[in-house]
Design a protein around this nucleic acid. Structure first.
Lengths: 139, 139
DNA sequence: TCTATCGTTGACATACGTGTCAAGGTCCAG
DNA sequence: CTGGACCTTGACACGTATGTCAACGATAGA
C-alpha cells in the first residue's frame, strides 16, 4: 500500500511515516515511479512504534528493540552483540520503572476521581469513609 | 532547603527545578535574600514529577494531576471543574494504554533476551523448544 | 486534456525538556 | 577583605517529534 493509506490505517500522517523511515524504524521499498510501497504488516508495526513513542521511548531506542519484537520469533544475531543485550536489559528495567510510576499515579488519580464523584453524586451526608484519612477541603 | 540540595536529593539539576517552577509544578517560597526555599516534601514531589516526565507525560498534564496525588487525600474543589474531571478521566485512559504498551513490549524483549541468552549459554545442542515457532537466524 | 488528488524532496517552524553560559548578588571561611 | 561556593535572572542552543509549506512529478477521472 502507499503512504497515504498506511497513514490513515495507522492513525498518523505521511509526514511522520517519512520521519520514521529516516530514523530507520521502517524501510518501505519503492514502486517504479518512486512512490513508497508498504507491506501489510507495517500497519501494526507503525501502531506499535506510535505506542512506544507515546510511552516516552525515543526513536533511537525503539529502533533497537523493534528487531526483538518480531513474531514468529526470529533471532537477529547481527543485533545481538553483548552490549546490545546490555542496552536491552537496562531498557527493560527503565520500562518497568515507567510502568510502576504510571500505575501508581494512575491509581491515585482514579482514587481521587472516585472520591470527587462520590462527593458530588451523593450531596453531603454520606460519610465518604473508605479513605485513609478524612479529606480536607482546600480552596 | 535550597535549590542545590533539592537538586542533589531529587537527582536532578537546579536548572530543571527552576523550569518546573516556571511551568507551575512547584512553588517554593523565598528567603529574605531572594533564594528559593524548598519544603521537605518536595523531594518526593520532584521525584514523582521526574518519573511522570520520563514516562512521557508533558508538564501541562502533570500540573493538572499533581493536586490529585496529595496524600493524605485533600480534595481541591477549585480544580474539580467538570471538564477538569473529564481531562483526568481520559488521561487515566491514556496512561492505561501506555502501561499496556510498555508491558507488552517489555515482555517481548524479555522473551527475546531469554532466547538469546539460552542460545549462547548452552552452545547449540539444546532444542530451545519453549518457542512458538522455530527461531530462524537472520544475518 | 484538464484538474484534482496523491506522491516526492527539502526547508523552515514550533513545542518541549534540557544544557550551558554570562553577569551579577549572597554568604561563609580564611 | 578576599576567594570560593552557591544563589539569582536571562539568554541562547540543542535534540526530538511534529506541523506546514513550496515546487515538482505521477495518476486517474471528467
Amino acid at each position: 500500500m502507499r503512504i497515504g493509506e498506511l497513514a490513515r490505517r495507522a492513525e498518523t500522517t505521511p509526514r511522520l511515516l517519512r520521519y520514521y523511515e529516516q530514523q530507520g524504524l521502517i524501510t518501505p521499498h519503492r514502486e517504479a515511479n518512486g512512490y513508497r510501497e508498504y507491506d501489510e504488516y507495517l500497519v501494526d508495526r507503525v501502531l506499535q512504534i506510535r505506542g512506544l513513542l507515546d510511552a516516552g521511548l525515543p526513536t533511537r531506542i525503539i529502533k533497537q528493540i523493534l528487531p526483538c519484537l518480531d513474531t514468529p520469533r526470529t533471532i537477529h544475531f547481527a543485533d545481538a552483540t553483548p552490549d546490545m543485550l546490555d542496552t536491552l536489559e537496562s531498557e527493560t528495567d527503565r520500562m518497568t520503572r515507567r510502568i510502576q510510576c504510571l500505575t501508581r499515579n494512575r491509581d491515585a488519580i482514579r482514587e481521587y476521581l472516585d472520591v470527587v464523584r462520590g462527593l458530588s453524586d451523593q450531596p453531603t451526608d454520606r460519610p465518604t469513609e473508605p479513605l485513609t484519612s478524612r479529606p480536607e477541603v482546600a480552596a
